[in-house]
Amino acid sequence: MNDVVQVTNLSKTYGKFLAVKDISFNVNNGEIFGILGPNGAGKTTTLEILEGIVPYSIGEVEILGLNLKTNSKKIKTKLGIQLQSSAYFDYLTLSEILSLLGSIYPSSKSSTELLKDVNLTNKSNSRVKKLSGGEKHRFTLAAALVNDPKILILDEPTTALDPNSRNEVWDLIKRINDNGTTVIITTHYMEEANFLCDRIAIMNHGEIITVDTPDKLKQSLESKNSFTITTLNPLSQLQKQAMETIDPNYHKYFDNCYEIFIGDPSVTFNSAMQSLLSANIEITKIETNEPSLEDVFINFTKS
C-alpha cells in the first residue's frame, strides 16, 4: 500500500463559513508530508478531520485503507496525534501521563522507552509545568508516539521554540520517520518544511493550491532568475547604464553590491556576464540566487 492517506474532494463548513474547499491529496507511506499555509488557511481543520476530531461535510477520507467515517475508532488506534497547543493533566507526572494515554490503546510502548526516545528519562517524575519549552514539545511527541503509530500527525510542532530546541525536535521527527512512521505536519516555517518534508501542499483560503516536492516547487518559479555581484570599486554612471540594459530595475545593496534580475527570456546568463565585463566592471564575487521556499509560498499565497 503506497498511499496511507487518500483525501478526495473534502469540504468542511462551520455554519456558512467554508473552512476547507473541495481539497484532494494523498500521503505516501513513509514520507513526511507538509501542509504549508498562512493563518486561517484551513490547515488545522484538515488535520483535525484526519484525526477524527472534527466531522467533515462532503468528500471521502481513507486512512490506511479504511474509510474514516465508518472506521474512526480503528483508525485512531493507528494515529499519533500532537495538537497545536495541548496541555496535559497538571497533577500527573510525565511517566503517569504516558501510562494513562497508553492504557487507552490496545497496545502501547512503555513510558520508560518513550521518555528515553525523547531524552527525558531524568524528568519521568516531573510534571509538565516544570518542563522547558523544548522539553514540553519533546514530551508531546512522546505522548503522540505512545501507541507506536503508523502515521504521526503534528500540528505546528515547533511553534515558539528557540533555534536549538527547534533543531532537537526536527532531529527527533527525522528519526521517527527513519523508523518507518509516516509524518503529516503543518508549519509556518519555510525552513522547517524545506528541511523536513518530502512533499508539501500549499493551502490558502481552504484550498490546496499545489502539492509537490520542495525542489520542484522552487523550480516552478522559473521567472525567478537572478544573481548578485560584488565589484572591486563602486560603479561609474556608464557601468550602471550597462547594467540597466540587462535589468532596468536592478537592486543596489551597497555601492559595490547589486542584485540583477534577468527578466528577458532572450537574455542568457552568459550574455549578461559579457555585457558587464565589456563595461569594464571588475567583479570580485558572483552568487546565483535560487528561488527559496519562501518565494514559492509568497508567490502562491499572495493573492
Binding site: E51, G52, I53, I81, L83, Q84, L101, I104, Y105
Partner: peptide, 14 residues
C-alpha cells in the same frame, strides 16, 4: 481550555 478533552477525543477512548 487546555485542549485536554480534544486530546482525549483524538484517542480511541469511548
Amino acid at each position: 481550555n487546555q485542549q485536554i478533552l480534544k486530546r482525549l477525543l483524538a484517542t480511541p477512548l469511548p
